[in-house]
């Protein structure tokens, strides 16, 4: 991991606001991170923390209020040219949480999977069909399935259709928003394996958004923790689990249910109290506390975290 890593996507001081004037609500607040080519970057947080909004802002579904999103050296947020917009929609794809809700009930799999292809250069019907077949095979489905409707499939199969729909565009970067949360334990493993296989074969880069830290630990190279629209900590996965610094990260890690009764029944819960931070004079910043380990802290806290790392 130490060779020079190429940055694929970089988010800089991004804000996303909803509503106008008095109802204005800042869902994402001054968020910055880089995603390297070929890695799986995890974004973890509770519901309402803004993790999905970040994903949607990158793919241009939600407009950003401030800051930059830079994809392969080009700014892709705000006003951009039509060609760039088309390029972005091709190269960044999304996989959604609920395979029951995210597939068009009235369309056949054939159309669902190839819908994205209609936007670019026109393909002949035969070419399109061939592409659909190939995409279906790649996610472990049979080409015959193309003529069926979504309701004929189980949850795991539907999620595979969702993956095929993303793959057919030959993207470089996939945003997976809770791709396995709605699935059963045994099906989860299948979809997780599929995602990592595809990554190996095609050198894909993933932004994996989830609230489930045990899944993230298994699949992600680096994890960023978000709380109420603010990134509080970012580190390599094992580093984060070994030395969580920010109190919110620690509370989150201590709450993960572990499938091991001996550990689980004796675990100590840490509760996060946001009032513990005194940010009135000493303002917090997004700073690097050690190599590849970012944390949201003010001067006093930073000193404290450095002290903790020494131990």
């Amino acid at each position: 991991m130490n060779e020079k890593r190429e940055i694929l996507l970089s988010v800089k001081n991004m804000d996303v606001c909803f509503g106008k004037r008095r109802n204005r609500f800042k869902a994402v607040n001054n968020v910055s991170f880089d995603i390297y080519k070929g890695e799986t970057f995890g974004l973890v947080g509770e519901s309402g923390s803004g993790k999905t909004t970040i994903g949607r802002a990158i793919i241009r579904i939600n407009p950003t209020t401030a800051g930059d999103v830079i994809f392969k050296g080009e700014k892709i947020n705000g006003k951009i040219s039509k060609e760039l917009d088309r390029k972005v929609t091709r190269q960044i794809q999304m996989i959604f949480q609920d395979p029951m809700a995210s597939l068009n009930e009235r369309a056949k799999v054939d159309y669902i999977v190839s819908e994205g292809l209609y936007s670019g250069a026109r393909l002949s019907d035969a070419e399109r069909k061939a592409k659909v077949e190939k995409a279906l095979m790649e996610v472990g489905l049979l080409p015959e399935f193309a003529s069926r409707f979504p309701h004929e499939f189980s949850g795991g199969q539907r999620q595979r259709i969702g993956v095929a729909r993303a793959l057919i565009m030959q993207p470089e970067f996939i945003i997976a928003d809770e791709p396995i949360s709605a699935l059963d334990v045994s099906i989860r493993a299948q979809v997780l394996n599929l995602l990592s296989e595809l990554q190996k074969e095609r050198g894909l880069t993933y932004l994996f958004i989830s609230h489930d830290l045990s899944v993230m630990r298994f699949i992600c190279d680096r994890i960023a923790v978000i709380h109420k629209g603010v990134l509080v900590e970012l580190a390599e996965t094992e580093k984060l689990f070994a030395h969580p610094l920010h109190p919110y990260t620690r509370a989150l890690l201590s709450a993960i249910p572990l499938p091991d009764p001996a550990r689980e029944k004796n675990k100590v819960l840490e509760v996060y109290d946001p009032t513990r931070h005194n940010y009135s004079i000493d303002k917090p910043e997004w700073v690097e506390v050690e190599e590849d380990h970012m944390v949201w802290a003010n001067g006093a806290e930073l000193a404290e975290y450095r002290e903790m790392l020494k131990k």
């Binding site: 997780l192 394996n193 045990s214 899944v215 630990r217 298994f218 699949i219 572990l258 499938p259 091991d260």
Partner: peptide
């Protein structure tokens, strides 16, 4: 099939 018992980099 629990991810907690998986080995990273290998299929679950």
């Amino acid at each position: 099939s629990l991810p907690q018992l998986g080995v990273k980099g290998e299929p679950l």
